[in-house]
Amino acid sequence: MIAYCEVSAFTDTPGQGNRAGVVLEAGALSEAEMQALAAFLDAPETVFVTRMQDGAVRVRYFTPTQEIDFCGHATVALGLRLAQAGHWTGGPLVLETLVGRIPLTLEAEAGVPARVWMGQRGLETRPVALGLRRDLAEALGLDERMIHRGLPLASASTGLWSVFVPLLDSMILDGLEPDLPRIHALSDALGVVSVYAYAPVGVNRFAARDFAPAVGIPEDPVTGSAAGALLALLAREGRLPVRGDRAGGVVYQGHALGTPGEVEVEVTLAGQTVQEVRVGGRAALDREGSWTWEK
């Protein structure tokens, strides 16, 4: 019997935000067993702890259909569970992932674990050919004129690659009618995990929707790693207010699916060079259970 739990990340309300499976004792599981359990839970991602030792936790991430290199919301969910289970009291903690070592910071309120912050890898970007603007718009069910010309359209990553498509406003975002097979094909052609549409709702606040059929997720409710890449991209392009060497903001996601969540992002800059990206959020335990693999 393998113990697991389901956690709502980027929210403090169970059932909202983005659901993640968390398995704290997965050291004895095979890759096939991890994949089977992820499929059983049917959360967008499930994180498996394969080793805990000396302030470092080795993890693997699975969608219901395949292993992926990293997942932001599952990392926030894991941080909360490690703290609640007494495995993490707030000191330095590093996750060992397929994208490298990810530092975690625990923020408490009144002595209770409240928010998990995770460092992201350095920002990487790739331009998107102008000829693909129409293809991306049509894949989202839009006319190309609804793309925001003052915000960056580019592929970017701080751990996982997405293509970021800016829209004029959140009403357009809410009304998207995505063509998932076409989005899948474009994702493969661009070498990204997802097509991430976003729209401004304030000076440093954005609404977003993330479509990832290429990894078996038609629409991801709330996507921490992509939010980090988006705010880092916007900061580098001078589209966020900067105080000293810091910029930041909030991404709202999940409203279209009835599971709203919030991702907080802090970006440290040296001029227009992104030095550090941190993504933070709350999490809430949904339920706990146990599973046995039946071959």
Score class of each variant (00 low, 15 high):
R60K: 14
A38M: 05
E31N: 12
G55F: 01
A36L: 14
E31S: 14
S30T: 13
G55C: 04
A56L: 13
T63M: 05
D69M: 14
T65A: 14
M34D: 02
R51Y: 01
E45G: 04
V59A: 07
A38W: 01
L41M: 03
L41C: 00
A38G: 03
P44W: 10
T46W: 01
P64R: 15
L29A: 11
C71D: 00
G72E: 00
R58N: 08
D69Q: 12
Y61N: 03
V57Q: 01
Q35D: 00
E33H: 07
A39N: 12
G55Y: 00
I68V: 13
A26E: 04
R60H: 09
T65V: 15
P44F: 10
M34C: 11
A32F: 02
L37G: 00
A39P: 04
P64T: 15
M34R: 10
R60T: 07
G72L: 01
A28D: 10
R58A: 11
P44H: 12
L29R: 07
G55R: 14
S30L: 10
V59Q: 05
T50Q: 05
P44N: 14
A32S: 07
T63I: 07
A43F: 08
A43T: 09
G55K: 13
Q66L: 14
V57R: 06
D69L: 12
I68H: 04
A26Y: 04
V49K: 13
E25D: 13
T63W: 02
A39L: 11
E45Y: 06
E31Y: 11
V57C: 06
G27L: 07
C71V: 01
A28L: 10
E67D: 09
Q53T: 13
G55V: 02
T63P: 01
D42M: 09
L41H: 00
V49T: 10
E45C: 08
P44L: 12
E33M: 06
C71T: 01
M52W: 08
R60N: 08
T50Y: 03
L29T: 09
A26P: 03
Q66R: 15
C71L: 02
A38S: 06
L29H: 06
D42L: 10
T65P: 05
A38T: 03
L24Q: 10
M52Y: 07
E67S: 11
A43I: 04
D69I: 09
C71S: 05
S30K: 12
A26V: 07
D69K: 15
A28C: 10
A28P: 02
F48K: 03
F40H: 11
V59C: 06
Q35Y: 02
A43G: 08
G27P: 03
E25I: 02
V47W: 01
A43D: 07
F40W: 11
F62M: 00
A38V: 03
F40M: 08
L29C: 10
F40D: 02
F48N: 02
E25F: 06
V49P: 08
Q66S: 14
C71F: 01
G27N: 09
G55P: 02
L29I: 10
D54G: 15
D54H: 15
P44T: 10
D69W: 09
F40L: 08
V57W: 00
V57S: 03
